[in-house]
Design a protein around this nucleic acid. Sequence first.
DNA 1: TTGAAGACGGCAAGCGTTTGCCCCATGGGC
DNA 2: GCCCATGGGGCAAACGCTTGCCGTCTTCAA
Lengths: 331, 331
Amino acid sequence: MAVTIKDVARVSGVHVSTVSRAFSATHLVNAETRARVLAAAEELGYRPNRAARALSTSRTGNLGLIVADIANPFFPPLIKAAQAQARARDYHVFIADTDEQARVEEELIRSMAKQVDGAVLVAPRLTNRVITELAQEIPLVVVNRRLRGVSGVLMDVGTGARRAMEHLIELGHREIAVVGGPSRAWTSGEIERATEHIARDHGILIQRVGPNPPTEEGGHTVADEVVASGATAVLAHNDLLAFGLVQRATELGLDVPGDLSVIGVDNSHVARYSSPALTTVAMPVAEAGHGAVDLLLRSVDAAGSTGTVTLETSLIVRGSTAPPASGEGLR
Amino acid sequence: MAVTIKDVARVSGVHVSTVSRAFSATHLVNAETRARVLAAAEELGYRPNRAARALSTSRTGNLGLIVADIANPFFPPLIKAAQAQARARDYHVFIADTDEQARVEEELIRSMAKQVDGAVLVAPRLTNRVITELAQEIPLVVVNRRLRGVSGVLMDVGTGARRAMEHLIELGHREIAVVGGPSRAWTSGEIERATEHIARDHGILIQRVGPNPPTEEGGHTVADEVVASGATAVLAHNDLLAFGLVQRATELGLDVPGDLSVIGVDNSHVARYSSPALTTVAMPVAEAGHGAVDLLLRSVDAAGSTGTVTLETSLIVRGSTAPPASGEGLR
DNA sequence: TTGAAGACGGCAAGCGTTTGCCCCATGGGC
DNA sequence: GCCCATGGGGCAAACGCTTGCCGTCTTCAA
C-alpha cells in the first residue's frame, strides 16, 4: 500500500539498509549512491514511517504538551510558540487538556509517555512528588513550577507582583486585596510570598481572597468578598479573574479604576481588549513555550541533563489602576 | 527497559499472543486467564506500545488537528472540544499551526499523514483541489469548507451574516461596509453571497473592503477605508478584525456605536471582553470540534464514508450596534 | 464409545526501520 | 607483488505487537 523503504531499495537497486543509511547516516554511504536513493525516494513519494522508526530506535520524534485549559487565553500563545519550535526541530506535538484536574493530568502523561520523547507540563496542578516521580520515567520540563532535579522554565511572577504592588502603593493604596488562583499553582505561592514581603516593608494591609479557579466566573464569585473587604485595589491571580472581578464590580455600581483599582496577571489579550484595559503583569509566554521545548529537547538528547531558566516579567500599566478615591483607603 | 507484552506473558504464564488478545480481543480468551493477565499487567505497570501496535495494525490511534493560528481566539475552544472528544475515544491529537500559510498547511498534513489515522483541517487556506487530493491519501474532515467527497462540518455563517445585516437594516442603516477576511476562507465567500442577497432584497448599498488578514492589525489598517466609505455600519469577517476596527475608529474620534455600528463574527471572548461588547455572529465552535472528531472517527472506521454536518449560528446583539446618527446613512 | 464442534491459546510471520557485523573491492605502503 | 586498512554496502536480527493458522482439550449428541 504505502511506499516503504523496500520499494525505494528496489527502485534504486540497493539494499534497504543502504536506503535507511542514505537518510539517517548520510556519511556512511557514497554520495552518488545516496543521490540515486534520494531520487528514487522522491519519485515514489517515500516518507519514512515514524512508528517503525520509533520501534527500532525508541525515539518517537513526538513531544507532549499538557496544559490545564486550552481555552484559557494564557495558554494559546505558549502552545503556538512551543509547536513552532518543535516543528523547527522536526518534532510533532501532542496536545492535551487536563480541565484543571490533577488526576487527568497524571493519567494523560502516563498514557502519553510511551509515544513521546518527552513532555512539557505547563502550570501543572500535580503535587511535586508526583511530578518528580513522573520525571523519572520520561523527560519532563515544567513551566512555572520549581522542582529539584526537573527542568523548568519559570516566569518571575514574584517580581512582577512586587512591581504591581509598588505601583498601587505609589498611587496611594494602603489596603489591597490579593485574589489567589488555584492552590496548586506555583505562581500562587510566588505571588503570595512577594505580596507578603511588600506588605511588611510598606506597612500596608493585605486581604487574601481565595483560592479561586482562574476563570472569569471565579472573578464574579469573588467580587463581593473583595468589595466587602474595604480594599481600594486588587491584584488578581490572572487577567480572567481580574476581568470577571471588574465586570461584577461594575454591576455593583463601582467604577474601575475610580473606586477600585484592578491588576491582572498574564497580559493575555483579555487585558488589552477589556475596558478599561487592564493593568497587568506581562508573562513571557511565547518565550516560555519556545524555551521549554529547547530545554526538553536538550534533555532528550543528553539524558539526565536538567536545567532551569527564569524569564522576566514586567508590569504593564493601563487603564484599570488609579489613585484611590480621596480619603478612602487611608485609615 | 520498559515493560512489554513479553514480560506480562512470562509473569502470567501464558503466551504473548494471549496477552495481546486479553487486551484487544477479550472475547477470545477465557475470563479467568484474562484476569490473570490483567493482574500481571497491572502489577508490572504494563502499557501497550502504540508505535508497535501501529506498525502491525496500521492504526495509530492518533489524530491530526490543523489550524491556521492557535493564538486566534476562534480556535482554542474548537481545539479543546476536539481534543476532549478524541480523548474520550482513546485517541491522541497532534496539533499544528500553519501560520495562515497554505504551503505550510500542505506540508504539515503530508508530514503527519503517516502517523495519524486522520486529520481535521480547520478553516483551511488550501485550494479545493489540493484538499481533495489529500483526502485521497488520508481520512480528512474539513471544518468550514464545502467539498464534494470530503467530510465536513460547516457553520452556517451565511445565515448568521444575513441576520446581522437584517439587524443593521432594522436599526436604520442603509450603507454598510462588509470587511472581508482571507480570500481562501470559505466563510468569506458565504458572507459575501449572503450580504449580496440581502443588499439586493433591501436595496441597500454595500461597500466591500478586503480581503484582509483576520487579525486586530487587519482591523487597524482597514479602518480608514471603512470610515472614508461613508458607511454607517460594518460587518467584519471576524471579531478580531471588528475589534481592531473599533479601536482605530475610536482613535479617529468616532463613537461606536454612535457614529459607526460594528458587528463581528465568531463570538470569541474578544467580543465579550471588548468595550463596547461586540454584537457578533456566534459560531458553534465547540460543537464543530466535537463533531469533526466524531465524523473523522466514523470515516476512519468505515473507510470511504463521508458526511457533512451543518451547524447553526446565531446573532448575539450587544453594545456595538445602534441606529445611525440621525439623517446620516439615508441618502 | 465415538466423532464433531467449539473454546482456548500457542506458534510464527509480518509490520517498516535501524544497526552491528561482516564481506568485498580498492588502493596505498612496504 | 603482497598485505592491510578502509570505505561501501549487504545481511539479518531486533524493536513490540497483532493475527491467521492450527493443535489440544472439552463437551455433547448420536
